[in-house]
Design a protein around this nucleic acid. Structure first.
Lengths: 237, 237
DNA sequence: CATGAAATAATTTGATCATATTCTGGGCGC
DNA sequence: GCGCCCAGAATATGATCAAATTATTTCATG
């Protein structure tokens, strides 16, 4: 009996589906991921204040895990620490978007090159499925799903590149512009959103790493340009 | 009396020397900075286990601030979270150094360009003083001071660039290779350490942003190559 | 009888919470 | 309009619970 429960615990903790057993991973990790999604998919708007107790209430978590999640996110630049002890979702400026454009176009193509070199039929198939879901979301004007699938597409590319440091850098940048993407979509609509994914995928199928990198660089720059434009407009008001 | 202490607190908290009044900034911030220095200057070796309670004892801090500092550092890649709940200083592999080389040579020259465009006589003078201290440390074989001044030189360049996002990216990379730098110095000695700082400084004085960027790119690559070589040797054993 | 593997006990360490303390910001009176 | 006070929020501590590693013991086997 004790033996059985011990074995079960072992099994669960070593299970191959880490995100399915949400109860088994530590609370601070759970809170971190939830807040991350909130930020990435525009649930938390730029400029919005983030209070510890507010998160405690809305996520039903204790204080310590929330504090740790907030520290992690501030370390990643996803949240901003005002000199006093207030925490807010940072507001993007044009100058910061320019930095993000530079960083993404410097790092992301390299990840795509590596991903292409390591691509297999099954991973390309996987990317294609994500991109299909993305196209569907655009057609249906479903902003939330678009944001999710778009991020998933890029994130999957990162993981394919097998470059943990570059991946974490690229991934971290999403947290910085994620909250503003929703705003952009609100202004532009889901119609003419950038999507060079098809070109990138064809290149990857052909094993053309440089071509794939070029397509994704285009995608990145187009996407970030939209953010820049929307921001410039909003600032003009 | 209460009024006086309140005013003093105000004064202190707004003082222009944030690092001198260590008592006034929050404990988690203090712990974070101390651990950061420990990592950057080789006090914590790669592979070494980091226990919360160990840090509590050695820094004389409470548990919560230490936990938060560790979360921040893991978020920055300075510490690594093993699947079980152990935390260690990550061990660099050749593959990871290659990523670091790519990232640094992609980002750092851009920062130098921006720093050069914004340089004034006084900031260049400041950099020169740091570089002098650096040269002295090399001549004296003082590894610790070399590491400190070398980091200070680059960090000052970052802050001159007025690009918070790119700066935080570049700064974060130091935490990843910092612990290994001490090891490199142990093997190579302080003699033939890379130092293109003079070239960079001359270019900056001449307002030659591209020249300065080129020199610093050289410096970065040379430095990281040393790490790579030392690592390859150590792996061969 | 000695050695080694497996199971169990014990210690160490991490995660979480409840609580006390300190500080910030806004409201109220002067 | 200025300064003081108070509510509320954040920081920090210590205690408690849970998990994991290490040490120990036991048993089987050569």
């Amino acid at each position: 009996m004790t033996q059985d429960t011990a074995n079960v615990a072992k099994l669960v903790s070593f299970a191959a589906y880490p995100e399915m057993i949400s109860a088994e991973l530590p609370a601070h990790e759970k809170v971190y991921r939830e807040m991350r999604d909130l930020l990435l998919f525009g649930e938390l708007a730029p400029g919005q204040a983030v209070t510890i107790q507010g998160i405690c209430d809305s996520l039903g978590a204790g204080m310590t895990p929330v504090r740790e999640a907030i520290r992690r996110l501030t370390a990643e630049g996803a949240l901003e620490f005002l000199g006093n002890r207030r925490v807010v979702v940072p507001v993007l400026t044009v100058s910061r978007v320019n930095e993000l454009i530079f960083a993404r176009q410097a790092i992301e193509p390299q990840l795509v090159v590596r991903a292409t070199e390591r691509a297999t039929d099954s991973t390309i198939e996987e990317l294609t499925r994500i991109d299909d879901a993305l196209d569907l979301a655009i057609a249906q004007g479903d902003v939330r799903t678009y944001l999710e699938q778009n991020y998933r597409f890029h994130a999957r590319l990162y993981s394919m590149a097998e470059a943990p440091i570059l991946s974490s850098l690229a991934d971290g940048l999403w947290l910085r512009f994620g909250p503003s993407l929703r705003v952009v979509c609100g202004r532009v609509g889901t119609q003419n959103l950038p999507d060079q994914h098809h070109e990138a995928l064809s290149a990857m199928r052909a094993g053309d790493a440089q071509g794939a990198a070029k397509a994704m660089r285009e995608d990145v720059i187009q996407g970030m340009e939209q953010v820049r434009r929307a921001l410039a407009e909003a600032t003009r008001d």
